[in-house]
Simulated scan of single mutants.
Amino acid sequence: MIEQQYINYFEIVKGHITDASVYPFCIPAIQRLKKVILHPKVTFIIGENGSGKSTLLEALAVQYGFNAEGGSRDFSFATKKTHSSLTDVLRIGRGGIKPRDGFFLRAESFYNAASYVDDLETEKPGLLRHYGNKSLHHQSHGESFFSLFMHRFHGQGLYILDEPEAALSPQRQLSFLVRMHELVQAKSQLVIATHAPIILAYPHAKIIELTSSGPKVVSFAETDHYAVYKTFLNNPEQMMAALGILKN
């Protein structure tokens, strides 16, 4: 399978780090990061807030040639240069084939990417057909995300997605699972940082959890996402009582 991947692995070249005490090298999961082998179809990156998920995905995307704020490899806008120095020391193992398509979705800067699409449409009319023939700013947040997945992602691509569930309802997350599977069947590879148990349930995937001991591979049922949601939904009153919101 490895020759069918666009990215086989990534790792940090420790000798290129000038100061291990500064951000982001002070993050425990980053400090202990060794060679990470990616799944040929879908790799999920999970972990607590502050564990380094977004920082790692950003470095991976920029190292592959994507714009730091999101978009395809030909997006060149920059609202503010904020990407970390992790990019400079991250090494990726490229597969034997190149993707025909690709996109880096960064939920926190999607507004900026959508604005850039509008600017490009002004310069080159017709671009919006790849985004549902409608400005992403003229759609709801969730609709704009889903238009991107449905119309811009063509298959045979590398898609790096940071929290794609951020704007999606549970029902749309289920629809995203279907779309993700369609892209996988169309010879795509996806690397996704997420907190969403619905999305994490996708069966043809590898889940890598960023912990204080470093990255580790876990199963869906081993994730806190699964355990917490299952416990809460099975008995929300008991959970509310444990949190001190309801009295026993």
Rank of each mutant, 00 (worst) to 15 (best):
S54E: 04
L33Y: 01
T194D: 07
T79L: 12
Q189M: 09
K216M: 03
G47K: 01
Q5I: 03
K206M: 08
L127W: 02
L168W: 05
I207Q: 04
I27Q: 03
A20Q: 14
E123L: 15
D224I: 12
E108G: 10
I46Q: 04
L60G: 00
S213H: 07
L60W: 00
Y23I: 11
G155F: 04
Y64K: 13
L33A: 01
I37C: 07
V228E: 08
S219H: 13
M1H: 11
L90E: 04
Q238E: 15
G93H: 00
G142C: 01
T43G: 01
F176A: 11
A107G: 08
P236T: 00
P164I: 00
P99F: 06
Y111A: 14
A221H: 11
A201Q: 04
A68F: 10
I7E: 08
P170Q: 09
S169L: 01
Y131M: 06
F104E: 07
V42F: 02
S175K: 11
A166D: 05
A68G: 09
I12D: 00
D101V: 08
T122Y: 12
P236M: 04
K206L: 02
D74K: 10
F75C: 07
H154E: 12
R179E: 14
A29M: 01
G95N: 10
S109V: 08
R32N: 15
N49V: 11
G132N: 00
F77K: 03
E222M: 03
Q171W: 12
L90M: 15
G65L: 00
R94W: 02
H138W: 13
R91M: 14
N49L: 11
E237A: 13
I12K: 00
F103L: 04
L105C: 01
H16A: 15
Y131F: 15
A241G: 04
I45E: 05
V62I: 08
L168M: 02
R152V: 01
G96N: 15
S21P: 03
P164S: 01
P40R: 12
E108A: 13
A221W: 02
N112I: 09
E163I: 06
Q4N: 15
M180W: 07
R129H: 14
H195C: 03
A205K: 02
V218D: 03
Q185C: 09
G50E: 05
I192E: 08
G155Q: 01
V13P: 11
S21G: 10
I207R: 06
